[in-house]
Design a binder for these strands. Structure first.
Lengths: 134, 134
DNA sequence: TTATATTGGTCTCAAAAAGAGACCAGCACT
DNA sequence: AGTGCTGGTCTCTTTTTGAGACCAATATAA
């Protein structure tokens, strides 16, 4: 696993950067990462990266999310600037969610991680099986 | 398996892949991602990517993690095969945590996301400010 | 000697977050 | 008049997390 210049800086510095007092607790990178490190964010980002979806469509697409958490996660993604919410004056009104430019930008690296997961889920499951067998 | 250029596939397919019944709920990629999409995993991965650390060192490095969650997150990362735990027979015994090959492999794409966060946290904070101002 | 600190945890209890599901208003269709 | 669809919110319960006490064995300090 030769790191081909993954980073000239100490890796921890990425997290520490910007925190003047050297306190890793209120680090802006942590702040950003924690906004997307939750159960549903990456899944919804992935759905919306494919195409815009309406609220009910997302709910059907992800059957095991509660309506409450779908509302809340979309709200948080919108607040952080990844998702655009648009209400259409149909009857009843319909709401469409889509990625913003910032959202598409963030989805690039996120997708790399998802691809890694796709390629390596066998190894992870094997590791779990080994660990649990002991 | 056959396509190198994943962007040609529907992005949702990454999540759906492997789920025979087409049910996105028990998808292996979701399974893997959710193991690292929690509050402390990426932070500890980043610390251990720099160098191995002992339990107490990690606790001091991340002052706002509770001892309970540090134990649990390290345990989960070890179970998924990202982290190696080694006990040294000092007195009192010391425990060192380090990344496995799988962990280093996963940290590659994860680091891309962290770098994105470092570069774009200004935009995210601005989006939040705009959203909250309304 | 006695007191205190260190190691890496676990245990309990309180607080926060998430899940389940009822409920809502407005309108269309039957 | 009843039913269904829209995108939510509200309440209640369960799960997860946080705060902090406690642990045994040893080393160091007083």
């Amino acid at each position: 696993m030769d790191s081909k210049i993954v980073s000239l800086r100490s890796k921890l510095e990425i997290y520490k950067s910007g925190s003047g007092g050297g306190n890793i607790a209120d680090c802006p990178v942590r702040d950003v990462i924690q906004g997307i490190s939750n159960k549903w964010s990456s899944l919804l980002m992935m759905a919306l990266a494919e195409k815009p979806y309406r609220f009910g469509e997302l709910r059907r697409l992800v059957p095991d999310i509660s309506q409450r958490m779908l509302t809340q996660t979309l709200h948080d993604l919108q607040r952080d600037g990844y998702v655009h919410r648009e209400v259409f004056p149909t009857k009843p009104p319909s709401v469409e969610y889509s990625l913003t430019d910032l959202g598409r930008s963030m989805f690039g690296p996120l997708q790399q991680l998802l691809q890694w997961a796709e390629l390596n889920h066998g190894a992870v499951r094997a590791a779990r099986a080994t660990f649990d067998a002991v």
